[in-house]
Amino acid sequence: MIFAILLSLSTSVLTVNTANPPVEEFFASNHTNNWAVLVDASRFWFNYRHVANVLSIYRSVKRLGIPDSHIILMVADDMACNPRNPRPATVFNNANQHINVYGDDVEVDYRGYEVTVENFIRVLTGRLSPSTPRSKRLLSDERSNILVYMTGHGGDGFLKFQDSEEISSVELADAFQQMWQKRRYHEIFFMIDTCQAESMFQKFYSPNILAVASSKVGEDSLSHHVDPAIGVYVIDRYTYYALEFLENVQPGSKKTMDQFFKVCPRIQCQSTVSVRTDLFQRDPKKTIITDFFGSVRNVELLTETLNLQDSTAELSCSKDKCPEDKPPKSGVQPLSYAKQFPMPN
């Protein structure tokens, strides 16, 4: 029996490896910009793995070309500088510390108590207060491909935020519909790693959404392994294998979404990865993965030549040599520094 499983595993691995990406021309994706909304909805140290999950995807999309300005990263708790972390300013997805997914130039847009269902829905639908800075806004348009990744503790039809509130699958579906009506996306790739994850995309009814979930309704999504030095589970199974796949994707890669959907078969995940393609107009076999994980850069070539000045070159006159551009004002009251201590000593 075990032998049979091993055999089937090895054959499935072989088929994945030997299936070269089809050389035929891909359907034009028609998007002009890429965005990513990455959400970790769990607080508390024992949910370290959820932060590692979201940072794994953050690392991948950043490596594949989506700039920080186009990534909305929501992390509900601080794991990197948590007093319990024996290796400060790092989050590893692996007990062998292969990849520090936190990196040296991370930019978290929503953190701690800011990660709420309300803020998440507001980011998606664009209903934010006028003073919200650009880095906290999803400024997408009808030509944007958006990757939405969520992780946390969930159940049938909901995902918990910070262990105190939850978003339901209906709310999420309505938010996507509102985005569609407001022309805030061209295509969405929705990815979720939580228990009973499939239930979160079952209610979707807006067009052009491709969705993948780590488990079916009634199944738990499990964590991958524990790091005894940290004392907690460091990453979830589905995201671990997804990251393993994405680490081999380069910006010019022709790997398809269909190949990505085959990541983490039941033997590895211990849950069934579930996919929804009925809302999506294109064939996932002909949709390249960088349509969502990478970034489009439209380059327009100019025929003119522009001469730029060397701004670092020494200027012809220095501050000491140059005559004062303004003569010293006469009769003007000199300015003075404020007194720091307004009391008599």
Binding site: A80, V108, R111, A338
Partner: peptide, 27 residues
């Protein structure tokens, strides 16, 4: 810095706030 005495005694122009819980890290 530079400020007139009249201005610096008028605390209407200043605001102070602190968040003692805020965590500081690489981000």
């Amino acid at each position: 810095g530079l400020a007139s005495e009249y201005y610096s005694f008028d605390s209407r122009f200043m605001r102070y706030s602190a968040l003692p819980k805020e965590i500081v890290c690489t981000e």
